[in-house]
Design a protein around this nucleic acid. Structure first.
Lengths: 340, 340
DNA sequence: AATCATTTGGCAATCGGTTGTCATTGACAG
DNA sequence: CTGTCAATGACAACCGATTGCCAAATGATT
């Protein structure tokens, strides 16, 4: 009701409450954090005063004295990649639900920025979530020893991770293409530093060998729609009838380029993406892609991190979580063109 | 070179440096922040020790004692809306360049969440950037009195603002449609609480009156692709031959729905979006839309806020910045169908 | 009624810095 | 040789909480 303690405009402190109630500041602190350690009547008075003054604890001070900051850092390589939008949304939701603040940082695909950010965050965050880390295994492991960490799409022994199981979906995609009659297929690789890209290629190559079809690797290509042009040209030049792109951005870029060049999709060439990001369903043609539970992955990562921070809450914290993926067939894949 | 002070693993403090150099902690603080107040030789020793210990100041402690947090809050109504991706990217880049940290918060289109977040941020941020605020003018003004603020797409007297000039672009869009022969046009409105939507409608209605064409307002519709279905149906039912959507999300959703219903775009109906978000160029058909310099708006907002925080740097801080917009014509608009 | 166990709540140190105040130092001028 | 002044750096208070420790108060027990 009352806006503020009359006159003063600065936020109320624990001392203001203490003065009003005639108790020590420490008592107020206890009443607010460990209610059982304080007489129920004084507690009531304190709570009333706190409400009256519209008191909210100063998080800086809290962090300084308690060591806990109530913040979690979220590191993504490129904030403009729609893939991370969903991820960020997932972490944001789950963190907010748990009363944490999200510190979002774009590491600009740079291992240096990533490392220095981690060191920085060591003091200003209780833990960090690192998506698609560009760091070496050793560096990542070393960092994880210094601050609670959960990685996403980066599996290193000893570091809790959430892994979206796209590799296994690649064989599903491959079978889909084979069933449509394709036998010459390309994988449009992502950045060399991306473990996801490597794992997808490994899984795809293994599946291809198993099925006895020809799958070649092209690239690497940057995970942006602009790279799609180069990817499209490379695919066409290589003579394949279908390709599986590292992610939807590349795939969508390919779609645009192919259209410009008058190459029909899927009649002349089929394109499969990966992730099912915003836009995959309304591009032209709609993209067949491996749908990832991205937002959910973000939420799970937060849960794992919080479990690590507060070991009290029963549930034995799992150190690795594999998120299932499935193929979503849309319009960008079709029967292989008749052989010349 | 040396990893850490041998043995101790916790971050080095100003006191560690002081002990090594045999000076008081305050001297170290001064040497690091106001170098001229300290002997150049001791300063050198201190800097050497700091480097040796790999010292980085504790931001919490710094914030507590100095009152400045080095963080800026960025409030957006819906983090999943691609429009805000570009905005967030712009703020992130500019903040990082200035050495600030970005605190990203999704206010979930709720004025309550927005207000409480602001109160919260009052202590943990030096200033805030509020995009498309859902707050009343009074509430916004009151909040701005409590913490340095810059709004984006929300113009309230007394609060510095960055405004993307989409209203004036609406008349450009209208003229484009008129030149194609359209005379019955609909505006697919956004949320009632969105000032942008209101301003666009006002500008559009005025322009329509001026040109003597019929423009009716339909909606409101939530700014999501899913709302596009309802919007599309409403537009078709109203018998218009063209429509201007509040934003690209609605427009893209309409495109999808119209396609499902077998209504051709632009042959049967033309659609104009607003913002030119990710996806507007590759949807089907590519969307004619009002292109906004979104990322730039984010950067400008940060600059204005920082100018407000550090009045020292000459440039008289402008209190209002109007970002120009232009119409980008793509495939979703075409000649009006012949009258029945 | 005296003793002991248990609450209850205050004191003061602490977190890691910043900053006002002041004593010391040395240089220089008178 | 001494007085003035600027430069330097140490001391200590402070920012707003948390938390260990202890004394006082309460209540239960015998």
């Amino acid at each position: 009701m009352a806006m503020q303690a009359a006159g003063t405009d600065r936020p109320a402190t624990i001392h203001d409450i203490a003065a009003i109630c005639g108790v020590a500041a420490s008592t107020v602190s206890r009443a607010l954090s460990t209610p059982d350690r304080v007489n129920i009547r004084t507690r009531a008075r304190i709570e009333a005063a706190a409400a009256e003054l519209n008191y909210t604890p100063n998080s800086q001070a809290k962090a300084l004295s308690s060591g806990r900051t109530g913040a979690v850092g979220v590191l993504v390589p490129d904030i403009t990649n729609p893939f991370y939008f969903d991820l960020i949304r997932g972490t944001q939701l789950q963190l907010k639900a748990a009363g944490y603040t999200q510190l979002l940082v774009d590491t600009e695909e740079s291992d240096e920025v990533e490392a220095s950010t981690m060191e920085q965050l060591r003091k200003s965050a209780d833990g960090i979530i690192v998506a698609a880390s560009r760091l070496s295994d050793e560096a990542l492991l070393a960092a994880a020893a210094r601050i609670p960490m959960v990685t996403i799409n980066r599996d290193v022994a000893g570091v809790p991770a959430v892994v979206i199981d796209t590799p296994s979906a690649t064989s599903q995609a491959l079978d889909h293409l084979i069933s449509l009659g394709h036998t010459r297929i390309a994988y449009m690789a992502g950045p060399l530093t991306s473990q996801s890209s490597t794992l997808r290629w490994t899984a795809l190559a293994a599946a291809a060998e198993d099925r006895g079809v020809d799958v070649r690797r092209l690239g690497p290509f940057a995970p942006k729609t602009q790279s799609g042009a180069a990817a499209a040209d490379a695919a066409v030049h290589s003579g394949v009838t279908a390709c599986i792109a590292f992610n939807d951005l590349i795939a969508i870029g390919m779609l645009q380029r192919l259209r410009e060049r008058g190459i029909r999709v899927p009649e002349d060439i089929s394109v499969v993406g990966c992730d099912d990001i915003f836009g995959a369903d309304f591009c032209n043609p709609p993209l067949t892609t491996m749908t990832s539970p991205i937002e959910q992955a973000g939420r799970v990562a937060v849960s794992m991190l919080l479990a690590q921070l507060n070991p009290l809450a029963g549930g034995g914290s799992r150190s690795r979580s594999l998120m299932p993926t499935h193929l979503t067939v849309r319009g960008s894949t079709g029967a292989a063109p008749a052989a010349l």
